[in-house]
Amino acid sequence: MPQSEIPAPLEQTFSGLRALVTGGTSGLGLALVRTLAASGARVAFVARGRERVEHVAREIPGAHGIVGDVASKADIHPIALQAVGELGGLDILINNASDLGPTALALLGDTDCEDLERALATNLVGPFRLTKAVVGSLSASAREGRGAVVLNVSSDAAINAYPTWGAYSASKAGLHHLSRIWNEELASDGVRVLSVDPGDMDTPMHAQAVPDADPATLKRPEVAAHELLEQIAAALPKRSPAIVEAAPAMGDRA
């Protein structure tokens, strides 16, 4: 989305905030990274492919690209270390990276166990691990009055039973409930955990799942990104326009 289309309220909310987006080089994730950056946020993003990460980092000046796989246990702390180190803290985590399970979509009886395990690793266990690794940073932001939000990208498949979407649905249902419980548990620490269904979008992942869908009937990812950021904004404490700058990382002023 060109910068001129960013409405003032988003800029007022996100300017100076520090955000990490997983799956940030395509579809909804890329739209989120672009919109956050255009709104004045400091953004780090994660994706598996080095080439795409470097390409997007070049395209969006100031965005920090991190190569990593959220499905891999060994990658989680290196991702958290780089994001928090590069941004000097963290106010927003968006767990967006998703795995469809089997492609083409398959009945559960035809789904390989490995495909289910991969969907769970990417869509449920990965967001759990990454949230755990950065919840110290998020709660510090909340204590400093800046607010802190984890947004987990959900799906209507987390609620409804659609045949052939079993692996994806089960993982998203797990993520949805994990979000709700964590939101309760972190309420007294000031960290909000949201689970939001962005709707059916014209993205590479949707094309993979439903190859013959008419793109004209699908939401543009830029529109969905905008809607998700409005939900995050609503969960953050109101800020006076005067205090939009993030505190510098320790030593930044040295």
């Binding site: 702390h77 690794a133 110290g136 510090a140 320790m250």
Partner: peptide
């Protein structure tokens, strides 16, 4: 040791 062994539950800035 892995990093998760040495990060406290409130671990934030990696300094």
């Amino acid at each position: 040791l892995a990093l998760w062994d040495v990060w406290t539950v409130v671990a934030g800035p990696p300094v």
